[in-house]
Design a protein around this nucleic acid. Sequence first.
DNA 1: GTGAAAGCGCTAACAT
DNA 2: ATGTTAGCGCTTTCAC
Lengths: 350, 350
Amino acid sequence: MSKTPKRPLTLRDVSEASGVSEMTVSRVLRGLGDVSEATRARVQEAASRLGYVPNRIAGALASNRVNLVAVVIPSLGNMVFPEVLSGISEGLEGSGLQPVVGFTDYLPEREEKALFEMLSWRPSGVIVAGLEHSEASRAMLARAGVPVVEIMDVDGEAIDAVVGISHVRAGREMADAILAAGYRRIGFLGTKMPLDYRARKRLEGFRARLAEAGVGIEDQEFYEGGSALLKGREMTQAILARSPDLDFLYYSNDMIGAGGLLWLLGKGVAIPDRVGLAGFNRIELLDGLPRRLATMDACRREIGLRAAAIVAARRADPSLPGAERVELTPTIEPGDTLRRRPGAAPDPRA
Amino acid sequence: MSKTPKRPLTLRDVSEASGVSEMTVSRVLRGLGDVSEATRARVQEAASRLGYVPNRIAGALASNRVNLVAVVIPSLGNMVFPEVLSGISEGLEGSGLQPVVGFTDYLPEREEKALFEMLSWRPSGVIVAGLEHSEASRAMLARAGVPVVEIMDVDGEAIDAVVGISHVRAGREMADAILAAGYRRIGFLGTKMPLDYRARKRLEGFRARLAEAGVGIEDQEFYEGGSALLKGREMTQAILARSPDLDFLYYSNDMIGAGGLLWLLGKGVAIPDRVGLAGFNRIELLDGLPRRLATMDACRREIGLRAAAIVAARRADPSLPGAERVELTPTIEPGDTLRRRPGAAPDPRA
DNA sequence: GTGAAAGCGCTAACAT
DNA sequence: ATGTTAGCGCTTTCAC
């Protein structure tokens, strides 16, 4: 190497190296037209020879445009958000936009902080999980002046656009399927997190629908932290020790459901006749289990795709009306753990 | 609301609203000293009443400081990087730095693009997975003028700092443990990805150590895409159908290993006597399986922690020498799928 | 097709 | 303890 400048290179360096004005260099590097082929070639050559990396900070300040989309999600632990993220990445492809992720750990104050941090970079859009936010968070989002897409959930009031499923309805439909299959003594197993609103809404819809049929949740079990698969085993053992008459276990997510399934299979319990099982999320892992757990697809990837598409579309055409509302419809997959009674009411979604 | 300004607020707005100069407002908002309590209070009040969100773009340009750390990793699919990420987040806590993640999908050209994008925001540091990069990527990193920490792997030449484990050694030590347990007819099951250098290095070390003992890999099976758990089942079935005499299966990751374990248990195969098994990564999922798969902890969380600590330390004190090298030592966990022969050579790491 | 001037919103450095 | 001035590296606008 000839020299190792500690200072990052600027447009001016490329300008001097190529003998072309800064302005024209900028045009070439941004791929704008109206530059002669000869000039373009000289500039490109100089830029790549020097290893110039543009300073987006300066560019963004001058142009008032930032190619970043803020994505604020609870965590990466539970298999659900990685898939949403990959949907977002895919949906942003070709738009020139880039996702930047922040995490909340399901804590409102962390959400607030994450939003503040991200908004301070003036992103071109915000995609945020859930409809429940602190007052301050809502205020920030409302004033951000860019598209805001709340994802995962549609049960509530949106700030701007929303893309998701109804978790209340998801719970209700699973209750329908379970009742239709003839189960009546139902246990629920879930997470302790009081701030996981979507899990709560599913339970709420589930419980309400059961109640309409005169059925109650006979026993429940909650966990927190640790390996979900292991917790699923432990909770299943515990709930059945306490309430051996249960004939169905509804798990708030597939991972604990899978744990329960493995434990029951190990015990030689007849599934789905003696006990039926269902989870939620349709995680890929289920494909590798000895039996297929009944579940419900949460449309995670498509949620990401659609949310990204909204941000990209509005950036391309800021005159769009906004406040888009996309409600996706999850479908029940009965798998092998939900009894199919010949005489039972048919699944309305066939 | 009184008014809804489409234009984001600036320091000047807060200055006017509070009757304090922009400079002093800036001081208050950045928490610098030498401001009277009265002024501070007035400024804080005005800022939060207006809902001011600072413009980091302008701040970064003026101060030449950016509180972002670029993190470039292959993907989020395989359980390994979420944990690294959470280690990074934790390690960055209190430093004022924020991780920003980019994905490569194990493709060098995507890595190059991700690095270029991130470096154009002039982050305070770069944490990148692996030691293998394109020429252009290496050049960018070398010229970035900020700490660069290559993580996960130490087998190769680092650009600056490196934090990881030796995958060659990990493969070799697993081979040692398997040989010591008395297995001799060994099969390997892994991923097809030719660009997963770490998996390749493990296999390389594994094969080399076996060869030293005069043992070969008798059969192998590779997969790509799909549910790893399911692929593990399928590959296990396939390899044993073809080579029924194998007495050990070494999986390149725990997820396929778990699939194999479940399949073998379902078939009633005696584990670890008839067939022994081992994976790699020590994923949490293993805790919930009927038997504990033998595995090796990849120290993912600690790698993230240490890498973050290096970036934070060097930012706090730029005079630090750099080129830190941290080699972590993974430990074998024999679980229930690696036979323990009383007379066998003892584990040197006991 | 190319260039010169102004300024994006902040902060460093220097007053006072 | 507070204010003033200059300028970060680019893009916008307008001139040629």
